[in-house]
Amino acid sequence: RSRTAFTAQQLEALEKTFQKTHYPDVVMRERLAMCTNLPEARVQVWFKNRRAKFRK
């Protein structure tokens, strides 16, 4: 699988949600996936990586 390049709009939506909660539930992730045209699995991995970045 190749690396996913996120658009500015996708990142904005993801970051906005991350500010609200670092652990979105499956419903919220699926809604984000639909809004951003990304698979739910990519949204889940983005949050996992973003939490790791946040802890540093």
Rank of each mutant, 00 (worst) to 15 (best):
R1S: 14
R1C: 13
S2F: 12
S2H: 12
S2N: 14
S2L: 11
S2W: 03
R3I: 14
R3Y: 14
R3P: 12
T4F: 14
T4C: 13
T4D: 15
T4N: 13
A5Y: 09
A5F: 12
A5R: 11
A5I: 11
F6C: 06
F6H: 05
F6T: 02
F6Q: 06
F6I: 08
T7Q: 04
T7C: 03
T7F: 08
A8D: 09
A8W: 05
A8K: 07
A8Y: 12
Q9R: 03
Q9M: 13
Q9E: 11
Q9K: 11
Q9D: 13
Q10V: 03
Q10L: 03
L11F: 06
L11P: 00
L11C: 10
L11E: 15
L11V: 10
L11H: 12
E12M: 02
E12F: 04
E12D: 13
E12P: 00
E12A: 06
E12Y: 05
A13N: 00
A13S: 10
A13R: 07
A13W: 08
A13D: 09
A13K: 09
L14C: 02
L14E: 01
L14M: 02
L14H: 03
E15L: 06
E15A: 00
E15G: 05
E15N: 03
E15T: 00
K16V: 08
K16C: 11
K16S: 11
K16T: 12
K16R: 11
K16Q: 12
K16W: 08
K16F: 09
T17E: 08
F18E: 05
F18C: 08
F18N: 02
Q19L: 11
Q19V: 04
Q19A: 12
Q19P: 09
K20Y: 08
K20E: 12
K20H: 10
K20M: 13
K20P: 00
K20C: 08
T21H: 05
T21K: 03
T21L: 07
T21W: 03
T21S: 06
H22V: 05
H22C: 04
H22T: 07
H22R: 08
H22S: 05
H22I: 06
Y23Q: 00
Y23C: 04
P24G: 01
P24Y: 04
P24S: 03
P24K: 08
P24C: 03
V26T: 11
V26S: 15
V26E: 13
V27W: 05
V27E: 12
M28W: 04
M28K: 01
M28Q: 13
R29E: 07
R29S: 06
R29K: 04
R29A: 07
E30W: 11
E30K: 02
E30G: 08
E30Y: 03
E30N: 05
E30A: 10
R31C: 08
R31F: 04
R31Y: 11
R31D: 07
R31L: 08
R31N: 11
R31I: 04
R31G: 04
L32K: 07
L32N: 00
L32E: 02
L32W: 03
A33S: 07
A33E: 00
A33L: 02
A33N: 01
A33K: 05
M34E: 15
M34F: 10
M34S: 12
M34T: 13
M34C: 09
M34A: 14
M34V: 14
M34Y: 04
M34Q: 13
M34P: 03
C35H: 14
C35R: 14
C35V: 15
C35K: 12
T36S: 04
T36L: 14
T36D: 04
T36R: 02
T36Q: 10
T36M: 06
T36I: 13
T36P: 02
N37Y: 01
N37L: 04
N37P: 01
N37E: 09
N37H: 09
L38E: 02
L38G: 01
L38Q: 04
P39K: 10
P39Y: 05
P39E: 11
P39C: 06
E40I: 09
E40V: 09
E40P: 11
E40M: 11
E40L: 07
E40D: 04
A41Q: 11
A41K: 12
A41D: 11
A41W: 15
A41Y: 12
R42G: 06
V43G: 05
V43I: 13
V43K: 04
V43Q: 00
V43S: 04
V43A: 07
V43D: 07
Q44H: 13
Q44L: 11
Q44N: 08
Q44M: 09
V45C: 11
V45T: 15
V45I: 05
W46K: 02
W46A: 07
W46G: 05
W46H: 10
W46E: 06
F47L: 08
F47I: 02
F47Y: 07
F47M: 03
F47V: 01
F47E: 00
F47R: 00
F47K: 00
K48D: 03
K48F: 08
K48T: 08
K48S: 07
K48M: 09
K48G: 07
N49S: 11
N49M: 10
N49K: 15
N49Q: 14
N49C: 05
N49F: 07
R50T: 05
R50F: 04
R50V: 05
R50D: 01
R50E: 13
R50K: 10
R51G: 00
R51Y: 00
R51V: 03
R51F: 03
A52V: 05
A52C: 04
A52M: 10
A52W: 00
A52E: 15
A52H: 14
A52Y: 10
A52N: 00
K53R: 10
K53D: 14
K53Y: 15
F54G: 09
F54V: 04
F54W: 12
F54A: 13
F54Q: 09
F54C: 06
